[in-house]
């Protein structure tokens, strides 16, 4: 006996095996990311005022990445539809477009977004020293406006060796706009467009610093969940791209020539996975970039 319903559908369920499999897999993926998102909610609700940063991510770039991912979801459906219409050539082009979208998304993440974070610096000021840095933090202004307190000074660290060398007594930071001009009402809300650090240098005595790191996962619960969730999402994108490349290579053309429906089924299953990866990003984007 051979395994039935690998390509044709079982009459009473109307499904072939892999389609059942992929939906079950996606159910488990919902639970995986559900666990991570509920952790995000837990951590965010627990965060004391001023301890959940805002506006540190680049919204236009994130929006572009969102659009690219949605576009790739469209192209993968078109690729599948072309296969169903038995037009391999067009399928090939749409699949290429999908792969390129995935690659662009990952490149933007790995070459631009993440490294930019690794280059950024933040120093949480001890509560008793907050007064001393009022010129950078503008907490009186924030209190008047009913904004959460500002506890951290961020920017570009000029003397990076200060992080490791105990003989250097202070950090020299090219301040972010919000710390360069904290009382400006324009700084009350995060910027939509990315604004680079200013030329204004702030000096922060190490004595007054509770914790100072680059924007790494260890920086805060916010960046910990940002890097973990976007990293895991990125791995999913990478996996999807690799499988799509396999389906785009000549080796899959042989599958198509033997039984075109077989390749169409494969693309459908992977397309479902790809839509799911897209959907996860639709949650990631507002949670980290906008809210």
């Amino acid at each position: 006996m051979e395994i039935p319903y690998t390509i044709s559908t079982r009459p009473d369920t109307g499904l072939w095996n892999a389609k059942v499999g992929i939906w079950l897999f996606l159910a488990s993926e919902v639970m995986l990311f559900g666990g991570l998102f509920s952790a995000y909610i837990f951590l965010r609700l627990d965060a004391p005022p001023g301890m959940w940063p805002h506006g540190l991510l680049n919204v236009p770039v994130g929006t572009m990445n969102t659009a690219i991912l949605i576009l790739s979801s469209v192209t993968v459906v078109l690729a599948w539809a072309e296969l169903k219409m038995r037009r391999y050539r067009r399928y090939w082009w749409y699949m290429l477009a999908t792969i390129l979208c995935g690659v662009i998304f990952l490149t933007v993440k790995l070459v631009y977004e993440w490294p930019q974070k690794f280059e950024h610096f933040g120093a949480y000021i001890k509560p008793q020293a907050l007064e001393k840095y009022e010129q950078y933090l503008g907490n009186k202004h924030a209190a008047e406006k009913g904004l959460p307190p500002r506890l951290e000074i961020t920017g570009h660290l000029h003397n990076r060796e200060a992080l490791t060398n105990p003989n250097i007594k202070e950090y020299e930071v090219a301040l972010d706009p919000v710390n360069a001009d904290p009382t400006n009402p324009a700084m009350d809300r995060p910027h939509f467009l990315y604004v680079p650090p200013t030329d204004k240098i702030g000096k922060i005595d190490k004595e007054d610093v509770e914790r100072a790191t680059m924007f790494l996962p260890t920086h805060s619960a916010y960046f910990a969940s940002y890097f973990t969730i976007t990293g895991l999402h990125g791995l999913h994108v990478l996996g999807g791209v690799l499988v799509f490349i396999y389906m785009w290579l000549p080796v899959s053309k042989k599958v198509y020539q033997r039984n075109p429906e077989h390749l169409a089924n494969r693309v459908e299953v992977c397309g479902l996975f790809w839509h799911f990866v897209d959907l996860i990003w639709i949650f990631v984007f507002p949670l980290f970039y906008l809210l």
Partner: peptide
């Protein structure tokens, strides 16, 4: 199992990447 996997990933991050989940 997947929610535990999420937890395992976070504990791994706590140990390897010094996060504070």
């Amino acid at each position: 199992f997947p929610p535990l996997e999420a937890g395992i990933i976070m504990q791994l991050m706590d140990r390897v990447a010094a996060t504070s989940f």
